[in-house]
């Protein structure tokens, strides 16, 4: 597969490590989350036949983590963006 890195252009997927579903970015708010929220976050993943948002870590490159939208049935990639542009906006002091 070829992943079109937003900063580096098309790169072979062999340079990347898959870190799992992009839902991992939606970590529950520790102030308000219920045990069920934590359970869902830690253990439940969708397994769609179709578009799947997932994290790819450019380990053999610039170490960016990308959010890649990939069709699991065709491997077609429809969107690639930098995770840090979409990450949670937590107050770093919290």
């Amino acid at each position: 597969m070829i992943i079109n890195h937003p900063l580096l252009g098309p790169r072979d997927s062999a340079e990347f490590v898959n870190l799992g579903a992009a839902e991992l970015m939606n970590r529950p708010d520790p102030e308000t989350a219920t045990p069920e929220d934590w359970h869902d976050y830690a253990y439940l993943r969708d397994n769609p036949a179709g578009a799947h948002r997932e994290l790819w870590f450019h380990e053999g490159g610039d170490r960016s983590i990308l959010i890649v939208t990939r069709d699991t049935t065709t491997h077609e990639i429809t969107a690639v963006e930098l995770a840090r542009n979409r990450g949670q906006r937590h107050d770093p002091g919290k």
Binding site: F57, I65, A83, R84, G87, Q88
Partner: peptide, 23 residues
């Protein structure tokens, strides 16, 4: 070593993107 670094980059880029920290 590789796994821990990956994990730290995940926390930095995906959970704390606004923090002023580089690895």
């Amino acid at each position: 070593a590789a796994r821990a670094y990956q994990h730290m980059e995940f926390v930095r880029q995906c959970l704390m993107p606004d923090a002023d920290v580089q690895l």
